[in-house]
Design a protein around this nucleic acid. Structure first.
Lengths: 75, 75
DNA sequence: ACATAATGTAATATATTTTTTACACTAAGT
DNA sequence: ACTTAGTGTAAAAAATATATTACATTATGT
C-alpha cells in the first residue's frame, strides 16, 4: 500500500469560479472554512462524499478536481 | 446539505473480476476485510483515497464504481 | 489611521472511518 | 461427518476527518 496521495485544484477552481471564497465554498458543501483550508493545504484528504459535493459545486467530474497519485501501490 | 449518499458496485465488480474475494480486494488496497464488507453493506462511505484505490484495482474511473446521490443539497 | 474581508495557524473537541478480534453461518470438497 | 473458504455480525480501540474557537496577517476601501 504505502503513501498514495490525493491532490486537488480547489484553490484554482475557486478563483475560476467568480473568485469564490473559502467560506462560500464551505457553505455550499456544508462544512467549515477550516475544512476547505486544510484540504487546499493538503493537510488531509476528504471523505468521498465531500469530494463529490465539491466537484458538484464546480460542475466537474470528481476526477477533474481531485487527482490520485499512487506512490508505489502494488498492481 | 442534508443526507447525500454514495453507493457503489464493489460487490458486482468483485464477481466480474474473477470472483475476487473480499479478502483479496482488501489486500490489494491495503485495508481490512471488514472495511470492504462495511462499504459493500453501505455502513459508511470510504475516504477519497480508498475510493481511488478501489477504482484503480478495477481499472475503472472512480465514478463508475461509486455514484453520488445528492438527496437535497442546495444548488 | 481605521475598518473590513479573506486567508493562515493552532489547539481542543467531536464524529466518522478503519482496525482488531472473535464468533456464527453457509456452501463446497474430502 | 469433517474441514475449509467465504461471508456476516458485533464491540471496542485506534486513526483520521471535521467542527469550534480564537487570534494573526495581509490587502483593500474609506
Amino acid at each position: 500500500m504505502a503513501k498514495a496521495h490525493t491532490s486537488n485544484n480547489i484553490r484554482k477552481l475557486r478563483f475560476h469560479h467568480d473568485e469564490m471564497t473559502q467560506q462560500e465554498l464551505a457553505d455550499k458543501v456544508g462544512v467549515t472554512r477550516q475544512t476547505i483550508l486544510a484540504m487546499e493545504k493538503g493537510k488531509y484528504s476528504p471523505s468521498l462524499e465531500l469530494a463529490f459535493k465539491i466537484a458538484h459545486v464546480f460542475q466537474l467530474p470528481l476526477e477533474e478536481v481531485f487527482t490520485y497519485n499512487p506512490e508505489n501501490d502494488q498492481a
